[in-house]
């Protein structure tokens, strides 16, 4: 596996008039492997959305550089190629749908890339089938539920055939069912098509499904590893303003009281299993 997106000592600050710019990211380095499923966790204002916007050159770092598939986001001529490789799905599905009919919206990306009409048709149909929205292809977006709209937005990105999808809190505005559907779709894209996923969220249970979890705080990386290891660091997580999965938290309390639970516990099922083993 080779690294697909690489942040090299990135420093970034939003320009505000009259004020001294406060750096959001400071000497930030991160490398994401091709085909990986990485979750970025963090409290509000920790810079995780900025990471998303840096990934395809919507924002350019003040110092350091971001490389995507060997292309530097600072070079203007690279941008179209970079954006075709890295698609971003934003939080509010309403603000990223451009057309009044679902299939027209999915076609928007490939149309911008100048793809042949017949090929666009094929990609649109395929993308809609992949996210399970093919039956709604003639629907008007404002008549869909939040989860359905977000899946349409994802279809709009995969119709461009990117190698990587960055999702910036895609489930924050959705109901539990919509969240589940979106999560399932993203996992499927990662597993079946090998699309690299960078999933930004503040939901623990969603981050737990990733291969690698990165916890951010105040513009730098606090923890980085597989979910099972990261979530054992209860105190560090709480200091960063994050919750700990309930099962892990309970297991930790039980251990403090002298119950011997051997493994690293992440889900309710695992906890139940281990407790049953101890009690017998």
């Amino acid at each position: 596996m080779s690294s697909f997106i690489e942040f090299q000592h990135v420093t970034f600050a939003y320009e505000t008039e009259g004020e001294q710019p406060k750096p959001v990211l400071h000497d930030f380095s991160l490398s994401v492997e091709k085909g990986d499923f990485v979750a970025i966790l963090g409290h509000n204002g920790c810079g995780k959305s900025t990471v998303a916007k840096l990934c395809n050159g919507i924002e350019i770092p003040q110092s350091g550089c971001v490389m995507v598939d060997g292309l530097d986001t600072k070079v203007e001529d690279n941008l179209l190629a970079i954006r075709q490789r890295v698609g971003i799905v934003f939080q509010n599905p309403d603000n990223q749908i451009v057309a009044t009919i679902v299939e027209d919206d999915v076609a928007f990306g490939p149309e911008n890339l100048g793809v042949e009409p017949k090929e666009i048709r094929r990609r649109v149909d395929e993308a809609l089938k992949d996210v399970g929205m093919y039956d709604h292809r003639f629907a008007e977006p404002h008549k869909l539920s939040g989860g359905q709209k977000q899946r349409v937005a994802i279809a709009g990105i995969i119709a461009m055939q990117p190698a990587c999808i960055v999702l910036d809190e895609p489930t924050a505005m959705l109901d539990p069912r919509g969240r589940k559907d979106v999560m399932k779709t993203v996992q499927m894209l990662n597993r079946e098509f090998g699309i690299t996923v960078l999933f930004i969220t503040h939901y623990m249970d969603e981050a737990a499904k990733a291969n690698r979890v990165i916890v951010m705080d105040k513009g730098s990386i606090l923890l980085d590893g597989v979910p099972r290891d990261v979530f054992q660091q209860c105190d560090t997580l709480r200091k960063a303003g994050l919750d700990v999965p309930q099962a892990t938290s309970l297991a930790q309390l039980l251990k403090q009281d002298g119950v011997s639970l051997p493994g690293k516990i992440l889900t309710v099922e695992e906890l139940a299993e281990q407790l049953a083993a101890v009690l017998h």
Partner: peptide
């Protein structure tokens, strides 16, 4: 969102 979907005006754009 439009920039992310490679929108760059009408030049070189095709239609489905």
């Amino acid at each position: 969102a439009m920039t992310c979907r490679c929108y760059h005006g009408g030049d070189g754009r095709t239609r489905m």
